[in-house]
Amino acid sequence: MNGLSDVRLSLHSQELAVGHERAMQAVMSRNAPRALGRWGLYWHRLRTRKALLALTADELRDIGLSREQARREGLKPFWRL
């Protein structure tokens, strides 16, 4: 390889790392307040998933979820997305 190829590979790997960090931040903060740390995010997920299990059929219809979809999401552990 010549020096130019090495530079391109190095820059490309840095761009991938930055893109991965941004994507992870976007996923982790999905529908959660921005100022939450990791444990705050876990607590938020736990509470909202429990609340999802308690919704009535009319409320689920309002948000566009079936009972099965709500159950599947509500029973996920708090550490999973």
Rank of each mutant, 00 (worst) to 15 (best):
M1E: 02
M1F: 03
M1S: 10
L4T: 10
L4F: 10
L4C: 01
L4W: 02
L4G: 00
S5Q: 11
D6M: 04
V7C: 02
V7L: 15
V7S: 06
V7Y: 02
L9H: 12
S10L: 13
S10D: 11
S10R: 12
H12T: 13
S13L: 09
S13Y: 01
S13A: 15
E15K: 05
V18S: 02
G19A: 13
H20C: 12
H20D: 11
H20N: 11
A23I: 07
A23K: 03
M24L: 14
Q25G: 01
V27M: 12
M28W: 05
S29Q: 11
R30F: 14
R30M: 06
N31V: 00
N31G: 09
A32K: 10
A32S: 14
A32F: 00
R34F: 05
R34T: 08
R34V: 08
R34L: 10
A35R: 08
A35L: 09
A35C: 04
A35N: 14
R38A: 05
R38L: 13
W39A: 12
G40M: 04
G40D: 04
L41H: 02
L41K: 08
L41A: 09
Y42S: 08
Y42I: 15
W43F: 11
W43M: 09
W43D: 15
H44Q: 14
R47L: 12
T48D: 07
T48C: 12
R49H: 08
K50Q: 15
K50D: 11
K50G: 14
A51S: 15
A51G: 15
L52F: 09
L52A: 06
L52Y: 02
A54W: 01
A54E: 15
L55M: 15
T56R: 05
T56V: 08
A57H: 09
E59C: 01
R61T: 09
R61P: 00
R61K: 12
R61I: 00
D62A: 12
I63T: 04
G64K: 00
G64W: 02
G64R: 01
R67W: 05
E68C: 01
E68P: 01
Q69C: 02
A70V: 08
A70P: 08
A70I: 07
R71H: 13
R71L: 15
E73C: 07
E73N: 05
G74W: 01
L75I: 01
L75V: 03
K76R: 15
P77S: 09
P77L: 09
F78H: 07
W79D: 06
W79I: 07
R80P: 00
R80Y: 07
